[in-house]
Design a protein around this nucleic acid. Structure first.
Length: 270
DNA sequence: AACAGGCTCAACCGCAGCCCG
DNA sequence: GCGGGCTGCGGTTGAGCCTGT
């Protein structure tokens, strides 16, 4: 089909975004949403192409973005999801609240891929119960057998350390099923067909920031220079800072609790 | 202190698919 | 059904930072 002309128009800026540009874009989207990325930079008075604006918003400016290092649980989830989904970074990102596909992709290529590769070369004799031909199929044994390979600070207490390892091992999957096991329980979370993203998008439907809102009436192409954000604005558009971050934290907290960190240090051996 | 090589991550590029006239 | 416009996605790049020598 027809390809979108890229940012080749004269005068359009490329390269790193300035804080001023960030502020303009953020303010505009908070106020009017992003119904039309192509028209947005013009409306907002940005010398960027819509594509660049969209990327900047999605990967950096969105308020529900969880900044900072990936937690152990997140990295394990990425590995598992990659095992199931392959390089479908957006699908993986949809399952990791607050993380973007770009971020996950970077983490995969810089950390996880290398880690898995190192492990497979050093522990080629390690047996895996999975018969999958996927190259990442030995993820479980990696975390079970060699937690010291991970670049995480290890607690001084051996009890805590071992429990972490066991929890990681408990995050096993059988294709579409992620099984989380804890003491005195076997809680299975059977996820629906992972090809159907609707389940997840519904589950994460609090992501109001992605809901296209309305642009100002474009009586002319005058850029809108000021859009102070008020509490009323955010309420009017159903937008709220921190909401999605809380959901993300809730997700991991829930996982944390279910895996036994929330009170029961002892976990079944694997 | 200076340099080189490696690493990280924000941003860009180009393709695919969806939507609509 | 066809074609153009647009968005979303995955792969790739490169500037800046970090680390080792």
């Amino acid at each position: 089909m027809g390809r979108a002309p890229c940012c080749e128009k004269m005068g359009l800026k490329k390269g790193p975004w300035t804080s001023e540009e960030d502020q303009i874009l953020t303010s505009f989207i908070h106020k009017y949403g992003h119904g039309n990325w192509r028209a947005l930079p013009k409306q907002a008075g940005l010398l960027r192409c819509g594509k660049s604006c969209r990327l900047r918003w999605i990967n950096y400016l969105r308020p529900d973005i969880k900044r900072g290092n990936f937690t152990r649980e997140e990295e394990e989830a990425i590995i598992k999801l990659h095992e199931m989904l392959g390089n479908r970074w957006s699908a993986i990102a949809a399952r990791l609240p607050g993380r973007t596909d770009n971020e996950i992709k970077n983490v995969w290529h810089t950390h996880l891929k290398k880690r898995l590769k190192d492990h497979t070369t050093t522990t080629s004799s390690t047996t895996s119960t999975r018969s999958s031909s996927n190259s990442t199929s030995n993820v479980k044994s990696q975390f079970v057998d060699e937690p010291e390979n991970l670049n995480y600070p290890q607690p001084s207490s051996s009890d805590v350390s071992s429990s972490v390892t066991k929890v990681s091992a408990a995050l096993s999957t059988d294709q579409d099923t992620i099984v989380v096991k804890g003491e005195n329980m076997e809680l299975s979370e059977t996820f629906p067909d992972i090809d159907d993203d609707s389940f997840w998008s519904e589950a994460l439907s609090t992501d109001n920031s992605s809901v296209p809102l309305q642009f100002p009436k474009a009586s002319n192409d005058e850029p809108i220079s000021e859009f102070p954000i008020t509490k009323n604005d955010s309420e009017e558009f159903g937008f709220s800072f921190g909401l999605n971050m809380d959901d993300g934290m809730e997700f991991w907290y829930d996982l944390f609790i279910r895996t036994g960190h929330g009170g029961t240090p002892e976990l079944p051996e694997f």
